[in-house]
Computed example of a mutant assay.
Amino acid sequence: MKMPTATPAPTKVVGRPPKGDKPMTGAERQAALRRRQREAAMSAYGHPQGQPTQAILAALSRQLAQLDDPEQAGMHATLRRMASDAVRELVARYKLKPNSLR
């Protein structure tokens, strides 16, 4: 008497499914990460509410650097307001007490 042959179970592929038709290389993943970080930093530049902390800090760094640039003197009022909004968001997010630094 012949035993019925069992069909092998399909093997599961480990890891995330590839985007597109082939997996991304390490360089492509890193480039995508940097692109997402740049986009987050650019969106945090004028509107820090709800943005990742790293993006807010990157935007604040650029704003403070522009405040040091004498060629940007016409933008100083706007840059100060934007930097103030970024600092206010960080203070509220982490429940900091700005007057406690004395």
Score class of each variant (00 low, 15 high):
22 K>C: 06
90 L>D: 03
15 G>H: 07
101 L>M: 13
36 R>D: 14
78 T>S: 11
68 D>L: 05
66 Q>D: 08
32 A>H: 11
23 P>H: 09
100 S>V: 10
10 P>N: 11
84 S>L: 04
48 P>I: 01
96 L>I: 13
5 T>V: 10
52 P>Y: 01
35 R>E: 12
87 V>Y: 00
84 S>G: 14
64 L>Q: 13
23 P>N: 11
53 T>Q: 12
71 E>W: 05
59 A>V: 00
69 D>Y: 02
41 A>D: 06
95 K>D: 13
47 H>E: 06
43 S>L: 07
9 A>H: 02
33 L>H: 06
30 Q>H: 07
96 L>M: 15
90 L>H: 08
65 A>T: 02
58 A>G: 00
69 D>G: 09
34 R>N: 13
72 Q>D: 12
69 D>S: 11
36 R>M: 15
95 K>M: 10
2 K>A: 08
37 Q>W: 04
50 G>Q: 07
69 D>C: 07
34 R>G: 08
21 D>Y: 05
101 L>T: 09
4 P>W: 07
27 A>W: 12
74 G>I: 06
101 L>G: 13
34 R>W: 12
10 P>M: 10
83 A>E: 01
84 S>V: 00
5 T>L: 12
98 P>V: 11
40 A>M: 04
88 R>H: 08
37 Q>R: 15
28 E>G: 05
83 A>R: 02
21 D>K: 10
67 L>F: 03
54 Q>M: 11
65 A>E: 14
81 R>I: 00
86 A>G: 03
39 E>D: 09
8 P>R: 12
5 T>C: 10
96 L>R: 14
71 E>A: 13
52 P>N: 08
63 Q>P: 01
93 R>L: 07
86 A>V: 01
71 E>H: 09
36 R>K: 14
87 V>F: 03
84 S>Q: 10
5 T>N: 11
65 A>V: 00
20 G>Y: 04
18 P>Y: 06
19 K>V: 06
49 Q>H: 12
49 Q>C: 04
97 K>A: 15
72 Q>K: 14
28 E>I: 03
8 P>F: 01
9 A>G: 00
71 E>T: 09
91 V>M: 09
32 A>S: 15
53 T>K: 14
17 P>E: 13
19 K>P: 06
95 K>P: 01
83 A>N: 03
10 P>V: 04
16 R>M: 11
100 S>W: 08
47 H>M: 03
99 N>D: 15
45 Y>F: 15
26 G>A: 05
89 E>D: 05
2 K>L: 08
56 I>D: 00
12 K>Y: 06
48 P>N: 06
26 G>C: 01
51 Q>V: 02
91 V>F: 03
35 R>D: 09
70 P>L: 04
10 P>F: 07
15 G>A: 11
64 L>N: 13
4 P>I: 06
72 Q>W: 02
44 A>V: 07
97 K>L: 15
29 R>G: 04
62 R>V: 02
36 R>Q: 14
10 P>T: 09
24 M>A: 12
87 V>K: 08
80 R>L: 14
48 P>F: 00
48 P>Y: 01
17 P>F: 02
43 S>T: 05
52 P>M: 05
49 Q>K: 13
2 K>D: 03
52 P>W: 04
16 R>G: 04
11 T>F: 03
57 L>K: 12
58 A>C: 03
88 R>N: 14
24 M>L: 14
25 T>M: 09
